[in-house]
């Protein structure tokens, strides 16, 4: 079943056509890479899917077309987004609170939230960072936390913008294992050829605002 579909997507920013006629679809559980030169519109594409950028064309989630800010704000609880720069994404005082944010916003009970946070801390092997302020984390730790705090939302799709940049061998491995394991659909924007080779998923190329296989 198609979870996400995009038809004739066009985005203009400051009078420049950043995306022109993008067609794309993602099946439930499907995982894909998007690659391509800098400034090709990859980040804009992810932001458009999240509803942060005005667009022309059609975006549908599970067959329902998304038009207004309201449509997107409902969707956002089900579709996660990992920013290119973790410093821009993390805003809570500690790692624990960062992870608890999404389930709390969902309105889950304290005990449930606690359980989810514990499980995720364990899953990413970051239990020791629990009470650490996010600004005191290393670059790699920030990246792991920026993925983990989206995972606690239990999203059906996760959009990731260059998630493996600046990771050491060990953290890279941990993150790749998560990508393999997770039941969520994934769209990963990346330049990491090792990652693409290792996972071998479908590779899409974004060039001059167009997306092709």
């Amino acid at each position: 079943m198609e979870i996400l579909s995009v038809e004739n997507l066009r985005v203009k920013l400051e009078n420049r056509e950043v995306l022109r006629r993008v067609n794309f679809s993602l099946k439930d559980g499907e995982k894909v890479f998007i690659t391509g030169p800098n400034g090709a519109g990859k980040t804009t594409f992810l932001e458009t899917l999240m509803g942060f950028v005005p667009f022309e064309g059609k975006i549908s989630f599970k067959g329902n077309e998304l038009k207004s800010e309201d449509d997107f704000s409902v969707l956002r609880g089900r579709m996660g987004y990992v920013f290119q720069n973790p410093d821009d994404q993390l805003f809570a005082p500690t790692v624990e609170e960062e992870l608890a944010f999404a389930p709390l916003v969902k309105g889950l009970k304290r005990e449930q939230v606690k359980e989810i946070v514990e499980r995720t801390l364990k899953e990413f092997e970051i239990e020791h960072l629990r009470e650490k302020p996010t600004y005191k984390l290393s670059g790699g730790e920030k990246r792991i936390v920026s993925v983990a705090c989206v995972v606690t939302m239990d999203p059906e799709v996760i959009l990731l913008d260059e998630p493996t940049t600046g990771l050491d061998r060990n953290k890279w491995e941990k993150l790749v294992e998560f990508f393999e394991r997770t039941g969520s659909s994934l769209i990963i924007v990346t330049h990491d050829t090792k990652l693409m080779k290792r996972l071998g998923w479908k590779r899409l190329v974004m060039e001059n605002g167009e997306l092709r296989e």
């Binding site: 005082p93 500690t94 609170e97 009470e131 302020p133 600004y135 005191k136």
Partner: peptide
């Protein structure tokens, strides 16, 4: 205040 305290 709690935020700043937790952040040190």
């Amino acid at each position: 205040f709690l935020y700043l305290k937790k952040s040190g």
